[in-house]
Simulated scan of single mutants.
Amino acid sequence: MRLGFIGCGNMGGAMVSGILKKQLLASEDMIASALHEESRKALREKFGITVTSDNSEVAAFSDILILAVKPQFYAEVIHEIREIVQPDTLVVSIAPGKTHQWLEEQFGRPVKTVRCMPNTPAMIGAGITGVAPGEQVTEKETAQLLRLLSALGETEIVPERLMDVVGSVSGCSPAYVFMFIEAMADAAVADGMPRAQAYHFAAQAVLGSAEMVLKTGRHPGELKDMVCSPGGTTIEGLSVLEEKGMRSAVIDALRACTRKSKGI
């Protein structure tokens, strides 16, 4: 199996790194294109993969082709490679809002397309990727791709109609979690804790809380209630968060992401 990346920034680099670490493919089985020589040199030195400035070279090489450029460049890139991509090539999009129908319209013919939405924790192998295979993609091809994506963390098949929701609930949300961690650390610093220690306590608390949700299978509300002693400090803090509208702010933010992804 030969894997190619058109564009290889943070997410593409995370995937290459994870695949090599897990020995899912060898470096000679991968190729990536990058616009700038500095980026190509860095990829070559870090991973030992073939690099090029020619997107067509990547398309011709690849059994699985990952389009990892920014969404606004998708039409231009597809126009460049559409005559080169073979009928059995798996074309993987990681761009929000680019539907299977839109992708096939750009290629001008039926293509084996898969929509994926990873998130930035994939850079440390702790991500979750939503995967929506197109109608042309076989179960075997899907399984091959899922195996490669496992290098980024967890994967889950979702219907295409939910891909915009995946983008909001897991793709965009790390930014909001980082903001939450930063705000908690700021409060700790205001109350006298050194900055580095404050980040450590806040981040570990978020990490441990997330693990509790995943490993206990309990409802988040139940786990929240376990922390709230009658008349205690936690319920006092929760009352402030409710007063400030934390729940509605988070819901509104994620739904705004979904609408943006859908182009509404």
Rank of each mutant, 00 (worst) to 15 (best):
R44T: 06
A122I: 03
E139F: 09
A256C: 10
N10P: 00
E37D: 12
V111C: 02
K46P: 06
A126S: 14
R247D: 04
P159Q: 11
A253T: 13
E80A: 12
V206I: 12
H219A: 08
A95N: 00
P87A: 08
H79V: 06
A32W: 03
P230T: 02
L152Y: 04
W102E: 14
L223Y: 05
I124V: 15
D63T: 12
L162S: 11
S168A: 15
P220L: 10
P71Q: 07
E141C: 04
A126V: 08
L20Y: 09
P220W: 05
L145A: 07
G12D: 03
T258L: 02
I78Q: 04
H36Y: 13
Q197N: 08
S56K: 15
L25W: 06
R44F: 04
A190L: 07
V92D: 03
G134A: 05
L146A: 10
V169L: 15
W102I: 12
D191W: 09
D186S: 09
G231E: 01
T129E: 03
G12K: 06
Y176M: 09
I81M: 01
I94C: 01
F201P: 00
R259M: 11
Q23I: 01
V131P: 03
S229K: 05
S56A: 13
I6P: 06
Q72W: 10
P174C: 11
G231C: 04
G130S: 13
I128S: 02
G134I: 00
S53N: 08
K260L: 11
L254M: 14
F61E: 09
L207D: 01
L146Q: 14
V51G: 04
R247W: 05
V189T: 02
I235K: 02
Y176C: 05
G153P: 11
A60S: 15
K21D: 13
S168M: 03
V240Y: 09
A175P: 07
G9Q: 05
I64F: 08
S229R: 08
R247F: 01
E154C: 14
A143R: 14
R40S: 00
P96V: 13
L149G: 07
F178H: 10
F61V: 11
H79C: 11
R259D: 06
T50S: 12
F73V: 14
C172A: 14
G245F: 11
S39E: 08
K224E: 03
P133V: 05
S261W: 05
A249V: 00
T233L: 12
A32Y: 09
A203I: 01
R115E: 00
D63P: 10
R109K: 15
T234Q: 07
A249Y: 02
I84W: 09
I181S: 02
S239A: 10
E139L: 12
A249N: 03
I94T: 01
A60Q: 12
E154W: 14
K21F: 06
G134S: 07
L149F: 12
M246S: 00
T155A: 06
L214A: 09
S93M: 01
T258W: 00
A188C: 07
G4L: 01
E154K: 15
D252K: 11
E139K: 14
M193S: 04
K70F: 02
H219G: 07
A34G: 11
T89E: 05
P110Q: 10
I6Y: 08
T234C: 05
G127H: 01
F47H: 09
Q136T: 14
K98I: 15
P96A: 15
G127N: 00
V137C: 12
E38A: 13
A210N: 05
